[in-house]
Simulated scan of single mutants.
Amino acid sequence: MLFRVKRPISLLGLVAALAASGAAAQSPAVPSMSQNLPPISIGQVTLNAGATFAGSNEPIRSGLVWRIYEDRGDASQPVIVARSTSPTPSFTLQPGNYIIHVAYGFASASKRISVQRGNLNERLAINAGALQLKGAVGGSPIAPNRLSFSVYVPEAQNSEGRLVIADAKANDMIRLPEGTYHVVSTYGDANAIMRSDLKVESGRVTEATLNHRAATVTLKLVGSAGGEAFAGTAFSVLTPGGDVIREAIGAFPSVTLAEGEYILIARHDGKVYTREFKVESGLDRDIEVLARP
């Protein structure tokens, strides 16, 4: 629907208009200038949003998730009225009160706003940075698919801290609020674990490589040294104190272990065989158990 914009008319203007009305009736009709004006949008407000890193005011250009909630001013569950993953979204809203929320990974910022008419520009500052993690053994990179990372927030009554993220992958961009975190790196699926405390600074990516002291060993039950492995063998890897580290079944399963001494137990056809062995960091090798009577 088109609305014509009319200006207020003064008393003198009104008299002049009435005096001219008779002449206008005898003159050809002249199109109103207001017919050439674009339509006016009624009842909508444009909200232009953006986010920056706190302290530097550097724009955040990726990794943002925006949500606009209706601000009802009570304890009821807020209702999402708009969302976007654009770094600089524009939202079309009805006049009213809203909560604008932006998340950058595990960091976020929010603000209550009131929109009534026209355009509104909002910039939210997020106090956040990121971690990018890798692993290595003796200077050699570990394949990303063999690593996983857990990130904790230190707590006074908890030696490890509160878990923030589990099973993060190597080279992932882990976006976090500024602060110090406890990182646990697991190489393989046994006991090859390394820990480190890392600091996240606002607007920066902290890159870190956690160096493991571990190796991958292949377990075999053989009739003679270098012989063919027996299929269907059940293996158990224990510490010298008797704690079970890893169990596996097969002809030659592989396991990644932290540097140290171990006991290997092999079970096949109702018989049990044992062997002690040592893992040296970076030295991948076969561990054979001889099936002797």
Rank of each mutant, 00 (worst) to 15 (best):
R204Q: 13
E207G: 06
S224K: 15
L221Q: 09
E207N: 12
T218A: 05
N191V: 07
T206F: 00
V205L: 08
L221C: 05
R204L: 10
V205C: 03
R204G: 01
H212C: 05
I193H: 03
A192V: 13
E207R: 15
I193P: 09
G226L: 13
L198F: 03
E201Q: 14
L221D: 04
A214K: 10
S202K: 06
V205K: 08
E207C: 05
S202T: 13
T206A: 02
G226A: 11
E201V: 08
L221T: 05
K199H: 03
I193V: 15
T216A: 09
R204M: 05
A214I: 12
G226C: 06
L221Y: 02
D189F: 10
L198N: 10
G203I: 02
A192G: 09
A215K: 11
V200R: 10
A225G: 11
A192I: 15
T206C: 00
V200C: 01
V200I: 07
G223C: 02
L221G: 12
A214F: 06
A190E: 07
V222A: 00
H212M: 04
N191G: 10
T216F: 07
V217I: 12
D189I: 08
E207T: 13
T206E: 01
A214Y: 01
I193K: 10
R213K: 06
R195F: 04
L210A: 06
D189C: 08
E201N: 15
V217S: 02
R213A: 07
N211V: 07
S202N: 06
N211K: 09
K220Y: 09
A225Y: 11
R204P: 01
K199W: 01
M194P: 00
N191L: 07
S224E: 14
T209R: 03
A208E: 09
N191K: 05
D189Q: 11
V217F: 02
T209I: 09
T218G: 13
D197M: 01
A225R: 14
A214Q: 13
V217G: 01
R213L: 03
A190M: 04
A215R: 13
L210W: 07
R195W: 08
N191W: 06
M194V: 15
